[in-house]
Design a protein around this nucleic acid. Structure first.
Lengths: 217, 217
DNA sequence: CAATTTAAATGAACATCATTTAACAAAACA
DNA sequence: TGTTTTGTTAAATGATGTTCATTTAAATTG
């Protein structure tokens, strides 16, 4: 049969990714299968393997897109705040909101990591690093302690927020659990900031107002 | 064929669990299969279904045992410390050590949660709660802030440590990464404790004990 | 001790899965 | 026109979880 030229290779690629994301979003990762994706876009299994080396490649592409969306949401969240402290709270909230809105795809980021493909691994690391940078920038703006301490702080805080999301969104979250996660997040951040000696109150006193931070990208 | 009485039902159960754990420990969860477990204990596939309703039940039994082992390790760690602050550090370290020593089984706890079985879900929750309690006890000993605050603190801290483990032990960890995780953990805990006004150093010095910050929103 | 019941264990069958392969059709190019 | 390249399919392969009719041996009964 082999009708041809209906869609370009990259069109099929895009259709497949969107179809797969739809399946994952509604039924979860376990419900994903090559056959299901193929039939959803009106093709057969083999065609998928013409576009993707294997299912893992498709999964990694989806993870890449999810990480990009997450990053975009975090950047977006930064537009509503000025003080570094506020920005850190905003980043935490935006992260939790994203995780609650897309629980399955969010879980995939951590659970379905690239098998051994070096290219995918590198892209992964880079996209993850970008997330850390967002908090690093805010911590640098607070300018407390030595430079290297900032790297540690950023990772500690970010890991903490990730852990909160992981605990509360183990399964599909209800609204109450989502609020609970936000509460934990604010709690953790505030205590951490006070521990750094940069709590909101302190900073208003000492931090120069109007200091503008430029975000990457 | 069908010779009988070689092993009791509970013996087979135990053998299967141990064989499955060995497979997971060395090859990871994805390498687990009913046939592999069966042949490892000298039986055939069908026999497994005589003991377990399905593979998920076997997985949940393993998770239960892992949670018990983790709990035992944490209790063990508490015997080396006296001050609540020290105990919290010790709990964090012990958790990270366990996660690094059994990365596959540790991941399973979070990734392979019970499908829908109500019994399994309840047991799960209970075993998880037990872990929280260990930190709650220490925080109560510090006796800072209202009672309800302790619940939040325990979960925030514990989630933070879990997040650190999750970030650093995404795959099989090398020794350097494990040390990095411990550093992050100590960092997070110490800042958090200072933020509570209960750190060893600072509480003596300046911070008024019990000062509570209100968070934005 | 022989007959019968019952529990234990098997291995084949089923449906589904990811992945590979060979065949084939249509477009592109000569 | 014929040849090559490219897109597409159907079928084949081998592994998976799960079910089930059947067989085997121990336990129980008469």
């Amino acid at each position: 049969m082999g009708r041809r030229g209906e869609h370009s290779k990259s069109e099929i690629e895009c259709m497949a990714l969107e179809a797969a994301e739809a399946i994952i979003e509604s039924e979860g990762y376990d419900a994903l299968s090559a056959r299901k994706v193929a039939s959803a876009i009106g093709y057969t299994v083999g065609s998928l393997y013409f576009v993707f080396r294997n299912l893992d490649e498709l999964v990694q592409r989806i993870n890449g897109r999810t990480l990009d969306q997450l990053y975009a949401n975090l950047i977006e969240a930064l537009s509503d705040c000025r003080l570094p402290q506020q920005c850190i709270y905003a980043l935490g909230s935006a992260y939790l909101e994203f995780a609650a809105r897309h629980p399955h795809r969010w879980r995939m980021i951590y659970e379905q990591q690239p098998r051994d493909d070096n290219l995918s691994v590198d892209i992964y690391r880079e996209k993850m690093e970008r997330l850390y940078e967002l908090i690093e920038i805010q911590l640098k703006a607070l300018a407390v302690g030595p430079e290297e301490e900032v790297l540690v702080s950023a990772r500690a805080l970010w890991s903490g927020i990730q852990g909160i999301a992981s605990m509360n969104l183990g399964r599909i979250p209800n609204h109450e659990e989502a609020q609970w996660a936000h509460k934990l997040s604010r709690h953790l951040i505030s205590h951490y900031l006070v521990g750094m000696g940069t709590s909101e109150f302190k900073s208003v006193a000492s931090q120069p107002v109007g200091q503008v931070i430029d975000y990457p990208k």
